[in-house]
């Protein structure tokens, strides 16, 4: 069941994005930014946590989970440190993804050249 939910959730998010992409003048940059905001919004009252509990990996992969991780880390730190925790914990959970992306980009940029 997890596998079907993963397929459906990730597929439907991509389908919505594709429909916006084809029917409006928004670029992929606009859409990813909007989806991150939506992901952050869905975590305010724990809706995205419900998706992750139900869909597993399929809910962690779309860019909406990036916004969810940002606010989730911030709120976790806010429970410990109070108000300033919103700033301390902002990158707690997304740091892995960003750091990995930077390091892999650095290594591969040193090795490879742009193909045209």
């Amino acid at each position: 069941m997890y596998f079907i939910n993963s397929f459906l959730f990730c597929g439907i998010v991509c389908l919505i994005a594709e429909l916006i992409l084809d029917n409006t003048k928004l670029t992929p940059g606009h859409i990813t930014s909007i989806f991150v905001c939506i992901g952050a919004f869905l975590d305010v009252f724990g809706i995205y946590d419900f998706f992750i509990a139900k869909c597993g990996g399929g809910a962690l992969l779309p860019i909406t989970s990036f916004g969810h991780s940002l606010i989730h880390g911030a709120l976790q730190a806010a429970e410990v440190n109070g108000f300033i925790g919103l700033l301390i914990g902002m990158f707690d959970l997304t740091a892995t993804g960003i750091t990995a992306a930077i390091i892999f980009t650095f290594v591969f940029t040193l090795i490879f050249k742009a193909k045209d």
Binding site: Y2, F3, S6, F7, L8, F9, C10, G11, I12, V13, C14, L15, A17, E18, L19, D22, N23, C55, G56, G57, G58, A59, L60, L61, P62
Partner: peptide, 23 residues
């Protein structure tokens, strides 16, 4: 547009499925 939408759905779904399988 319909073809693009279906392809995006299938590819996105497969990526999500692969994520769950990898976990």
């Amino acid at each position: 547009k319909l073809k693009y939408a279906i392809v995006a759905f299938l590819v996105g779904g497969l990526v999500g499925l692969l994520g769950e399988v990898l976990i």
